[in-house]
Design a protein around this nucleic acid. Structure first.
Lengths: 258, 258
DNA sequence: TACTATTGTGTCATATTGACTCATTAATAC
DNA sequence: GTATTAATGAGTCAATATGACACAATAGTA
């Protein structure tokens, strides 16, 4: 892992040439597995704290691109809908403990003015991705990258817990306007699958029949002839998202205005 | 105006000691006058372009505080609900024309590395304020500060038009969850006044009777005995916001969930 | 005093929502 | 093979919300 170490060193020493100062991006990446909502987290090389997959904004890069790049490098996923939901800017957001330990362990000289030790404002994005398609990949500063149950989060760095909670809050609000599920489910899925997602995101149970009626009324699903089998009991229909209608709804909203 | 000039010089030369690099705040300040929705804009000292009242984030200041400070200095208003709605981060947001002209006119030496000439990411906030209470105050870089009709905006700097449009879009979405009007209307007002605001914000007409029914169902209004008179025809009731219930609704939402 | 424009209130048809029921059916147990 | 079981698709019905409209009341004006 000499190579990774060298990359990290270069990043620490020359990052200020490539990245904007003071601005970072943090992604709350939601996945869904065994009827549980999961969040992708990294564990710092030094110390026990976990953190959100985040990164910095290249000097000539759109912040949305930066978020997409972070998502791509951590999960291997491309072309995923990322929603910017809030920017976090308390004055003492940054704790430099992890960084300073890293400097020491790599024997990289640094001073107080080092770009990474300054205050950062972080722009939060969330994404909903298909659990099975993700290949979690730690970054230079972390040793692990794994999923965590949303209701059993480990100790998190800084305000990262707040960021996750805010993401969930905003996501719940947007559930009324934006369809959900496209990157979260496989190509074909049952109504029950989709309902589970909504239930988990909302944190409460929904009536089966009413849910189905409502979702179908959005007109974003195509029903397949093929039936799912393998589970016990009656075979449910399989559905897929009508990509065209789904993305129109994503842009134009689901039409629940004042 | 020698003093203002000196302030500006100091800001240009020493700003980097006090403010975060690369991060700014822009406020979309909505007012309501003669049944028109207005936005407060500044006109640059040099050139004809108008811009949003904005500013920088002090090194030890919460971004929300920075937005509140900008609002306070431009309008004299304090304690106003400011909603962060989006962060704008295209790579070529900043046009340095205005700045460079300013450097020249003040004979302040500068080079490419000057902190203000770097790329900035801007955090957008909107506020709804009482038109008559505002005392518009230009900043160091501008010569005027006045209201503009939302549907007759002048030529705006950079992406400031996009910012205004996005603010309106987000505001419209939030109209379903958040009550509106508290800082927009005087202490007492008629149902018609409030309806006009909603109509203007939404850009369409609403049924009088249905609007009244719906707003009253939120339970955030107190009806006064006193009747408004002076206008022609039947005297309407006067209402005021029940501050306690209003702010509970602002936090907890108006209860229109999935 | 009559007229007019606007307001408070009420009605009614329609749409949406929440809580159920019931027949159907795929896998499992017998 | 047949009965059992549990989940599914479809449907019902009352409660509620919404959109469109009607009508009497009334403050100023003619």
């Amino acid at each position: 892992m000499k190579q990774k170490e060298n990359q990290l060193k270069a990043f620490l020493q020359k990052g200020h040439l490539h990245y904007m100062p003071g601005v970072s991006v943090d992604n709350v990446i939601f996945g869904f597995h065994e009827n549980q909502l999961k969040v992708l987290l990294l564990q710092a090389n030094t110390g026990k704290f976990w953190m959100l997959p985040g990164g910095f904004v290249q000097k000539n890069e759109h912040i949305d691109e930066a978020a997409a790049r972070v998502l791509q490098t951590r999960t291997g996923l491309d072309n995923i809908f990322l929603q910017q939901f809030h920017t976090f800017g308390q004055p003492r957001r940054s704790s430099n403990k992890v960084l300073i330990e890293t400097f020491h362990s790599l024997e990289v000289p640094f001073d107080e003015d080092h770009w990474l030790l300054q205050r950062f404002v972080s722009i939060g994005y969330y994404a909903l991705v298909e659990y099975d398609k993700v290949h979690p990949e730690p970054d230079e500063l972390s040793r692990t990258c794994t999923w965590h149950d949303l209701d059993r989060l480990p100790s998190l760095l800084l305000d990262h817990k707040d960021i996750i909670m805010k993401a969930l809050e905003e996501l719940r609000l947007r559930l009324n306007y934006q369809p959900v599920g496209y990157n979260l489910l496989p190509e074909q899925f049952t109504m029950k699958n989709l309902q589970s997602i909504y239930e988990t995101l909302l944190g409460r149970e929904l009536d089966r029949a009413n849910f189905s009626r409502k979702i179908l009324s959005f007109g974003i699903l195509d029903r397949k002839r093929k039936q799912f089998s393998g589970g016990a009991h009656k075979a449910p229909f399989l559905y897929s998202f009508n990509k065209k209608k789904y993305f129109r709804a994503l842009e134009k909203g689901l039409g629940r205005d004042f």
